[in-house]
């Protein structure tokens, strides 16, 4: 054709196809290495009970991370997911234990609480143009305070509804394959991850999430209703926080109003380790799930090796920095 200079060389294409997968592969390799190292250092690490412990720890953080992955790809941040999770679990407990509603209604109430909080975040960011860092920092405190107020500062137990805890900690898988008692909670994580992955890659919402994070002004000029979709993204993150709240309530058989702060950082770390770019426009659900596993595996392994809590924190912090650095190096090489 006449436009000789507008041609795409095959070489470019192959690097392109590699680029996205690399970070995920890297993260996955890191996860394997971590598992191998810990299993060599401690015979207890690969015990079934311990693996279940890791899975349980991943479930809550992983689901939070799913939500925040959307927000980060869209070019914003959500710091409120941890305490919104807490508020959701408190609302579930209030519905079930104090108002004696059926368990499914309580679950719905928890998820709806999360969604509502997310919607408020979205409104603050999209409509009032408050930077997401500030808006969600505010929401972090609002949700934290509300959880304490609503619960009267005390944990609320699900004592009248043992089936709630049983549903989460029981094992459908164990029923089918005896001995493989993986708690249902873990299945919820994988279910949520699947849904999140589909939303991100095959739906309009997913496409606009990338579009906004990639160049918000261009998306707006292309006729995309950026404000509405931004609100949708925050609401979705809220829904995931709500689900996480229900799960953590079921797992602990109680709503703990003072828990939650700090969870957002682990979730953001999981997303970033999995290759989600804090500058927006890039990321994947698979990466985030692997990232969440890396964090919980590390924490678990260090605990088994009796590394003090404070050092565990130092290590996870270091891992995040290394992950981000590797991501930057990778991108520079692609240039």
């Amino acid at each position: 054709m006449r436009i000789g200079s507008i041609e795409l060389t095959p070489a470019r294409r192959t690097t392109l196809m590699r680029s996205d997968a690399v970070q995920r592969l890297l993260a996955f390799a890191a996860l394997i290495v971590i598992v191998v190292i810990f299993s060599l250092l401690s015979p207890n690490f690969l015990q079934f009970d311990n693996v279940v412990g890791i899975l349980l720890a991943t479930a809550v953080n992983g689901i939070l991370a799913l939500g925040v992955t959307f927000v980060i790809i869209s070019g914003s941040i959500d710091l409120s997911i941890g305490t919104v999770m807490t508020l959701s679990s408190v609302m579930t407990a209030v519905f079930i234990t104090e108002w004696h509603m059926p368990v499914p209604v309580g679950i719905l109430a928890g998820v709806a609480t999360g969604a509502l909080a997310g919607l408020v975040n979205g409104t603050l960011v999209a409509k009032l143009k408050i930077p997401s860092f500030i808006a969600t920092l505010g929401m972090l405190n609002v949700a934290k305070g509300l959880a304490l107020v609503v619960s009267g500062l005390k944990p609320i137990y699900f004592n009248d509804t043992p089936e709630f805890n049983r549903a989460a900690m029981g094992s459908v898988v164990g029923g089918v394959i005896p001995g493989l008692d993986i708690p249902n909670l873990v299945l919820v994580l994988f279910g949520c991850a699947l849904v999140a992955g589909l939303i991100l890659t095959t739906t309009v919402l997913g496409r606009f999430t990338f579009a906004m994070g990639s160049n918000e002004e261009a998306a707006r000029l292309s006729g995309v209703n950026v404000d509405a979709w931004k609100m949708a993204v925050f609401a979705l993150a809220g829904v995931f926080s709500g689900i996480a709240g229900v799960l953590i309530g079921a797992r602990l058989n109680s709503a703990q109003p003072s828990l939650g702060q700090g969870y957002e950082l682990d979730a953001i770390a999981a997303a970033v380790i999995g290759g989600t770019s804090l500058s927006g426009g890039e990321g994947s659900i698979l990466g985030t799930v692997i990232g969440a596993f890396i964090i919980s595996t590390l924490t678990n392994g260090l605990r088994i090796l009796s590394v003090p809590q404070e050092w565990q924190t130092v290590v996870t912090g270091g891992i995040v920095i290394i992950a981000v650095y590797l991501d930057i190096v990778r991108r520079r090489q692609q240039q």
Partner: peptide, 11 residues
Amino acid sequence: LSLMPNLTAAQ
């Protein structure tokens, strides 16, 4: 130029 660099040409 007002394109979204992380999306493909078609997108």
